[in-house]
Amino acid sequence: MTKEQFERNDGKGESMDVLQIARPVAAATSDAEVTDNPTVLALKDLSVFYGDFRAVRGVTVDVRDNEITAMIGPSGCGKSTVLRSINRMNDLIPGARVEGDLKFHGVDLYDAKVDPVEVRRRIGMVFQKPNPFPKSIFDNITYGPKIAGVPKSEFEAIVEKSLRRAALWDEVKDRLDESALGMSGGQQQRLCIARAIATSPDVLLMDEPCSALDPIATGMIEDLMQEIKSRYTIVIVTHNMQQAARVSDRTAFFTAEADSENDRRTGVLVEYDRTERIFSNPADIRTENYVTGRFG
């Protein structure tokens, strides 16, 4: 990936192809245990501010290709803030800014030349509450490709492919023209995943995607994540430690502590490691207390 690809192109679908080429072959064998997958997102000493308030500081995380990276921690620890700074969703909040490094395939995402709109096409997002557009199921999925300049003739194929990947095709294939708002919460959330992958992103950010869902719908989303991680790199924020333990390859544990510079609490990254280590043999006592349920 070169820098030019993030700068605003003419939006004629070229961006989609670039991503297909850039995708390395997934490490399917047990090699993954020894050699790490290539780094997709490199966060180095990242801090995020809202005005004068430092919401989170000192975040150093390497998100690796075709892995699920979980961010856990108590409320107010800044995990969602970090997630939203990755696809520059925080730009929408007046006064929000970052310090430190946030590189995507080696390109600084906060470089002045980088267009946040292009970033969001490559780094898709699934939100806490399902938020389908008040449109038909079909239009929900084609909206992203449409504004990216993908020709209409490809829409049907994109819709089928996205819905199949989101494990939703069989349930809705006969009512694609119906409003997405008539679906159940779990279906809506899978539709939002389908909508996010319709633009062929490289990375999927999920901000507590199951917190509004029942256990069965949650299970379906978790299965779905396992299935699609061979194609996408996933970063998930979750309040549910069991979920992090079940689905993720690596886990970052955040907590909130008093900021040395002012009297407000600020989020901080405590530990980042392979998930099994975080849950069985964490290096930091705070992590251990949290994952064993003694705190938070």
Binding site: L92, G124, M125, F127, N131, F133, Y143, A148
Partner: peptide
């Protein structure tokens, strides 16, 4: 307009103008 709708639009790579016009 719910902020979730705005976020949905921006989240799939819409520009500000597209979010305003379409959502």
């Amino acid at each position: 307009v719910p902020s979730a709708l705005r976020e949905a639009g921006f989240g799939v790579g819409a520009t500000k103008w597209e979010v305003i016009k379409d959502h």
